[in-house]
Design a protein around this nucleic acid. Structure first.
Lengths: 203, 203
DNA sequence: GTCTATATTGTGATAGAC
DNA sequence: GTCTATCACAATATAGAC
């Protein structure tokens, strides 16, 4: 344990995060991670025995960027319409800070669906309770009939999709203009919130 | 050109499609494609000079599974509410027939965003006209104020997300039970259509 | 802890016989 | 058109000096 250990480990993790998230596990190269971190391959293997272990660290971290906050907000004791506003707002904020993580996590889970089981002990238990609670809140609020599952998927999908789909959305809908896409994203918080709340309101 | 050429080419393309869509470009191996096709690597390179060219064929095909149909439906001269119903219905049908293509195409476009330009000559031109037409239809129908872009993204996102997110959605929301997820997807057509039409209706 | 050098295996691609 | 054999290089991982 020399004085540089913590620092080097952070350099490695930062580099690994960038490379893995950009290229995925299969596209990432240990050499490139080492170069980005400003060290050599051997030192990578000194800190993390294998590419798999290094990836595992990055993937876990990425996964946890999103899930805890979701559960936290959805289980807070506030009125449903406010909860939805807060959820959309916070969720899009988190994505804006980590715009490439959703595509990364979803791709890696599709590549290896079994991986989710390692991350579930927390996630799985909490979900059941949250959903039945949400289901009650929907009824109490006098909203239209919709299952808690459908509503959750709608909310998350509406927030995430523009980012996952950016490489196809931007060129087709906004041309090469980054600014027009950014404006689109900026207005998304308001637009998605309006859209969802209106969809839930009886006529 | 022997009698088997067409047949072999189809074997190769079928195998390549399966492997590339399952594992992505970086995860796919020419050896595995050859094995799946029941031939050897050399023959792969005889039909497609390189892995890139073989991938290109598969990717183009996958991309075109979705985009033409979208434009076709959205430019058909029917009433907007019917158009939306038809769109959701057809779009989810297409995904059900090719459930892994959306994740595949979006991942490969994120891995190499420049690639979209090769596929745009058709796509790009048509989009502009469709969007301004859609914008008019939204106003004429007396719906809430929403841009054509926001509406399109909402419709596509609500259809696609459950499939891209399946590896995380199913375990968390429905446990290991495939049937409960299938039921969920089955009801999605109706649910998404209701959700969107209600969101568009003034109160 | 960090480096250089190297072992070992994997992988895309081609040569050449049939 | 199809095969076997092989090349050339890329990539993960380790050995061993400092």
């Amino acid at each position: 344990m020399s004085g540089n250990e913590k620092n080097t480990e952070k350099l490695i993790l930062d580099a690994a995060r960038n490379i893995f998230i950009e290229k995925g596990f299969d596209g990432a190269r240990m050499q490139e991670i080492a170069d980005t971190a400003g060290i050599n391959k051997a030192l990578l293997h000194y800190y993390y025995r294998s590419k798999d272990q290094l990836f595992e660290a990055v993937f876990r971290e990425s996964f946890n960027t999103f899930s805890p906050r979701i559960f936290e907000i959805m289980s807070s004791p506030i009125e449903l319409s406010q909860k939805i506003r807060l959820f959309i707002d916070s969720y899009i904020d988190i994505i804006l800070e980590n715009p490439h993580i959703p595509a990364f996590v979803l791709h890696e889970l599709n590549r290896n669906p079994g991986r989710i089981k390692d991350l579930m002990p927390f996630t799985g238990q909490t979900a059941g309770g949250l959903l039945s609670a949400l289901s009650q809140e929907i009824k109490s609020a006098g909203y239209v009939e919709i299952s808690a599952q459908q509503l959750m998927i709608n909310m998350i999908g509406l927030c995430i999709f523009p980012f996952i789909g950016r490489p196809i959305i931007q060129p087709i809908l906004f041309g090469n203009d980054d600014n027009r896409f950014d404006e689109f994203i900026q207005s998304r918080k308001t637009e998605v919130t309006k859209f969802i709340l209106n969809a839930l309101t009886k006529k």
